[in-house]
Design a binder for these strands. Structure first.
Length: 212
DNA sequence: CGTCTTTGACCAGCGC
DNA sequence: GCGCTGGTCAAAGACG
């Protein structure tokens, strides 16, 4: 399953992922990060996260494998799971960072902005989840004719899972509808890139953007 | 102390 | 066979 999501959506992933690798990918200015489910030891679920070359605010996430355990509700038992270190402040990733190709083949240690990020287990679950709920609703409203501009679904299992997950936050929806805008005007994102009105532009960007 | 991230090394697949 | 590329391993250090 391949999915494109924003950093907020990435952060709202309620699974516990442990990073086990990062590699620079040829053709992409951003490295690819490899995560493995750390909730259960024998869980075979994995995901790969890389930034979209066309839009650095969009993360291309590839899921593989199946979780062999139910979705964790609390991760407090994990020692280091609460660390939410955003190494690169996402405020200015939209512009002004044009990665220079050349010297990131072997030495990926250069802390070029956006080279590393940690979407694992943020401490803002409730708010983010409620926000994502709005996102999903917006997708439902605006993406009726255009199937997939930001989110490409290959498997329906995760859709159902997300539905179940978000349904739990429905009751806290009031503050996200009224104050949801504050989230974006507070510096993280000036405007959500996936509003229905801008979907056409995104679709054009992904299809004919000429990224290759 | 347990789990995390980081990061270079290692391995397998592929094209020439 | 060789080199390139992508995926994984594992040691070392950091964090709560």
């Amino acid at each position: 399953m391949v999915r494109q999501m924003t950093q907020e959506e990435l952060s709202a992933d309620s699974w516990a992922w442990r990073k086990y690798g990062q590699k620079p990918i040829k053709g992409s200015p951003y490295p690819r990060n490899y995560y493995r489910c750390s909730t259960s030891k024998g869980c075979a679920a994995r995901k790969q996260v890389e930034r979209s070359p066309n839009d650095p605010e969009i993360f291309v996430v590839s899921y593989s494998g199946e979780h062999t355990h139910p979705r964790p509700t609390h991760r407090s038992s994990l020692a280091g799971s609460t660390r939410s270190k955003f190494a690169t402040p996402p405020a200015k990733i939209g512009n002004a960072i044009l990665p220079q190709k050349g010297s990131m083949t072997t030495s990926s240690s250069s802390p070029a902005a956006g080279s590393s990020f940690s979407p694992t287990t943020p401490s803002m679950e409730g708010e983010a989840a409620a926000l994502i709920d709005d996102v999903q609703m917006a997708e439902m409203d605006g993406a009726g004719d255009d199937d997939d501009e930001n989110i490409i679904m290959i498997s329906n299992d995760f859709i159902n899972d997300d539905d179940d997950m978000f349904r739990g936050f429905q009751d806290s929806d009031d503050h996200s509808s009224g104050g949801g805008g504050d989230f974006f005007s507070s510096g993280l994102l000036s405007s959500p890139p996936w509003t229905p009105t801008s979907s056409a532009g995104n679709a054009a960007k992904f299809n004919g953007g000429g990224g290759d």
